[in-house]
Amino acid sequence: MKNTQGMVNAFFAFLLVVILGIFFFNAINQPLGNGLVLNKDNPDLSKRVSIHYILKNVHNAEDYLAQHKSSYFRNRDKVKSSNLEFGKTKNAESGSANEVTSIVVNYRGFDTLGEVTVLFISILGLGMLLHENKKKYWAKPSLIVRTGANFLFPFIVLFGVYVFVHGHLTPGGGFPGGTIIASAALLLILGLKDFKNKLTMTKIIESLAGLTFAGLGLVGLFTNGSFLTNFLPSGTMGLLVSSGITALIYIAVGIKVAAELSSGIMEMNGGGEE
């Protein structure tokens, strides 16, 4: 009897899925009309906001829009030429060579603030749910693991720091860098014979990093009149010291993610401190 009901459920679910599939495929293969096309291999970036992020001429585009209200973000004449050059162009808006970082931290920095909060609150929830868990899951490490962990730990941390410090120049950034450092913390837990959870320390570091992020935003609000404004000079694109608060925020994000994920791991490793 139970089996029959499962079959009926599965049948209806399958039916629903098939109907939805037809619905979706139909939509994807529709000509959208009016020059709007879902990307087929070569998106016309001049119809998207992102072209101005790539060209780093958002303020110009804003001026252009002010004059031609009906045709927005079709700044075609600007799209054709780009005078951005690595290592030479100075003070190009967000100023970071990595366009994704430009968008994540500068043009849409508010989303990243929310994203950091999502991670913060989910680790918080994890800690709350595993609060009663005092059991340590990991066995004591053998000599090989111990030696390896001691040897590798500084290199992994160094690599993580490199990734988030160069977030505005190379692939990577705060989130991957922080994750790498958290993996170093995991290695310590696995490799050290008497590892003590340092939840208090990670909490403090995390708070300070979060404070830096939100604080930089507030400084922008009070000096330049809008939250998360880049109030520092953005420098020459491609240098390590460039792109104003973008670099600083990514460093803060890196430290925060590292502290958050490490505290998550420690929370699973028996929660509270001795």
Binding site: S142, G148, L190
Partner: peptide, 8 residues
């Protein structure tokens, strides 16, 4: 890293 991880 690889030998250590497989050892573990």
């Amino acid at each position: 890293t690889a030998p250590i991880s497989s050892h573990n």
